[in-house]
Simulated scan of single mutants.
Amino acid sequence: MTPSEFETLLTSYTSGTCSQEERELVESWYTHAAEHSDMPPLDAAELAFYRQKIWNGLEQPQPLHAESHRAGRKLWLKFAAAASVLIAVFAGYQFLGHKSPKPKLTAVRTAPDILPAANKAFLVLPDGREVNISNLTEGTVAQFGHMTVRVKGKGVISYKIHPSVRAADRDIWYTIKTPAGGQWPVVELPDGTKVHLDAASSVSFPLSFAGRRTVSMTGQVFFQVVHDESRPFHVRANGIDIEDLGTDFNVKAYPDEQEVETTLVEGLVRVSKDTRKVMLVPGQQAVSRSKDARLERRQADVIGVLAWKNGVFHFDHTSIEEVMQQLARWYKVEITYRKDVSEVTFTGDLPRNLKLSRLLEMLSVTGLRFKVDGRKIEVTN
């Protein structure tokens, strides 16, 4: 069976139109491939990760009868995510098991292993001082300048204005930022909007949304905006303005990348750059490039875009330079190259909670070698 034939089978599987025999084929194949493929062997935790990711979506693949469009779309995304994992694993199995010998694991480590990113963030006060909010325990209520911060749960913080703040001080801006090697699951803004920050990212906001709701950001941030028809929510990112009317959307705007990507999951947004404007519907993406004035609209791989938020690295024929760039942010490491690797790509989903050495072992199927010295990684072919 070819990968395209298997993808067709998975499509009928996830839509609930496959036969019992076909269903048993898919499920038995996964069990066999997970335990007997020639890929670098998975330990118990990693095997559980892939199995759970698939079974969560495919345990009951009957036709969907959602109560609403929103619920139906979320169920569809869940099934599509599981199918994409099976397809990626199948493609890797075909390549490794039938087209080439098992590669040597070539991640060479000369220092203690590096752990994945953890919940770590800083609150930047108007005077430039930084407060490590990662040290605040659940239930803590702390006063920072005119802001009262409350830790509502693990990785969840909210803030409100101190009652004594004068009207003139309500436009003072604060920033919450994550370093390389850090992330922050949820920041609740005063209007109820929730913000999720990836590694090396930031969101800046005024003390109060007294008038127009506007924030700015860098890096990669997922927004769950509370609807307020009288006050649209605006996000500014590297020359782009995103106007939202009650929506879930993702913005990727790292300063060291050439593109700003806005991906819409639910609702409606208007993306503007200079005089250009595009409207997005769910499943679409607006792309702006720093080298020109264009603003393009295209269909998005929503599952892939949101993978980071769900604890997964998602790569689809991704250049090894981009793969390593993501690892540099997540593990807080520096990447160097001894030879040209511009033609090397990688496809697959990998857990973000792996130690660095284990993840590099998985990437070694590309034929590359990785030498780790402290927080420096040298890549060569």
Rank of each mutant, 00 (worst) to 15 (best):
R231N: 10
V149T: 04
T193M: 10
S84H: 08
N119I: 06
Y30M: 14
D198E: 14
S19R: 01
G139T: 00
D349W: 09
H196F: 10
P255D: 12
H162A: 14
T247Y: 11
R129N: 12
L42V: 06
T8Q: 15
L123V: 00
G348C: 07
Y331M: 02
E7F: 08
P40N: 10
N135S: 13
A210C: 01
V269A: 03
A307W: 08
G283L: 04
L207R: 04
L295E: 07
T106A: 12
T17L: 13
F209P: 03
V372I: 07
V341T: 14
T106S: 13
N250R: 01
A91F: 00
A91C: 13
N238L: 14
H317I: 01
D171N: 14
T275E: 13
Q224E: 15
V287Q: 09
K120G: 00
G72P: 12
S37C: 10
A118N: 11
T262G: 04
H196T: 04
V156K: 12
A88E: 11
K309Q: 09
D244H: 01
Y331K: 07
S288G: 09
V203R: 01
P103D: 02
L42G: 03
F233E: 07
V124I: 07
D244F: 04
R298H: 03
Y50C: 02
T262V: 12
T14W: 01
T14L: 13
A88H: 11
H146K: 11
L245M: 09
Q143D: 13
I87W: 08
P40C: 04
P61F: 02
V271G: 06
L327W: 05
P232F: 11
G57I: 01
W29H: 11
H162N: 15
V225H: 07
R129W: 08
A83M: 07
S319V: 02
F90R: 13
D340N: 13
R231V: 12
I242R: 07
T178N: 03
T14C: 02
Q224F: 08
T148H: 06
A80N: 15
A83S: 14
T11K: 14
V305M: 02
R375V: 08
V186C: 05
R212H: 12
A33I: 14
Y337I: 06
A253H: 00
L197T: 01
D127H: 01
K376I: 09
D244L: 04
S164E: 14
F313H: 05
P63K: 11
Y174W: 00
V271I: 08
V333T: 05
V269I: 08
K291R: 15
T11A: 13
P282Y: 08
S357M: 04
V305P: 00
S15D: 11
T11C: 06
S201V: 05
I161A: 13
S84R: 11
P112V: 04
G239Q: 04
T366V: 05
A200Y: 12
T106F: 10
T8M: 12
K277R: 15
L368M: 10
V89R: 10
G97S: 15
T178I: 03
R150D: 15
H98T: 14
F49V: 06
S12D: 12
T140Q: 05
S364K: 07
D340H: 03
V124P: 10
R109C: 10
K152N: 15
V165C: 12
Y13D: 05
V226Y: 12
G92D: 10
Y337P: 04
H146I: 02
S19C: 06
A80W: 09
D292K: 01
S15P: 00
I172C: 09
V215W: 07
D127R: 03
E257P: 00
R170W: 00
